[in-house]
Design a protein around this nucleic acid. Structure first.
Lengths: 107, 107
DNA sequence: CCGCTGTTTCGATGCTCATGGAAATAGCGG
DNA sequence: CCGCTATTTCCATGAGCATCGAAACAGCGG
């Protein structure tokens, strides 16, 4: 994970609207959600949502799959784990936060 | 942790320069680093660094402490843990990623 | 009190983003 | 092949960001 990739993903999540979209997808699980359902739940213009989705997809945080005329969106869990891993990677080099405590702190 | 706070922190980290600053501080550990050292290591104008630091501080990700004329900067580990926790909070509601697997995935 | 080093504020510029309405496109169902 | 629904692209606008140099400020050491 390059720092540029991490920054792009963090920036993608660093917007309330996109973060809301992303969390909605995270909650939806592997079934995913159609774009239209997302739009209803979040209450923004379709064009705005499309714009944000494109951003999340281009950074690899979200995937899409076509089912007939509707597009199903899903959170990319491995990508999220990778990003979180990058953040905590160099955390706690000092003694006050031993590596073994990481899992506990994040659980 | 409100979604607005999380988004602000993610946005703060979603910039290559700021992410570099932050990671440098994370690596530095509890000793922290003076602003001047940060500037040398990262190689940007002092005014630019000051601007970015202000942003990281205002979101609570970094703290500063005065020591004579130099300002020591430190990464705020609890804040980072809180943010990461927010991200993984609703992760894996579905069966394919049981809560107990979270720690393993993030370790 | 003076000057020096470290840091911030000011000002200016160019760039990218967030947003939504309107129009275009995609692909099924008949 | 047509029309319908779902989604994207186009366009325009207002707002905020990244960057740096110059100038101002803070506080110690003498």
């Amino acid at each position: 994970m390059s720092i540029e990739t991490a920054a792009k993903q963090l920036e993608a999540l660093g917007n309330v609207t996109r973060l809301r979209v992303y969390r909605t997808l995270v909650r939806a699980g592997d079934d995913g959600l159609p774009v239209g359902s997302l739009q209803e739940r979040i209450g923004i213009a379709a064009s705005t949502l499309s714009h944000h989705l494109h951003r999340l997809i281009s950074t690899g945080l979200v995937t899409q799959e076509r089912q007939a005329t509707t597009l199903i969106c899903r959170a990319n869990y491995p990508a999220m784990h990778g990003l979180v891993g990058f953040l905590v990677d160099e955390c706690c080099i000092d003694a006050r936060c031993a590596p073994r405590e990481k899992a506990a702190a994040l659980a």
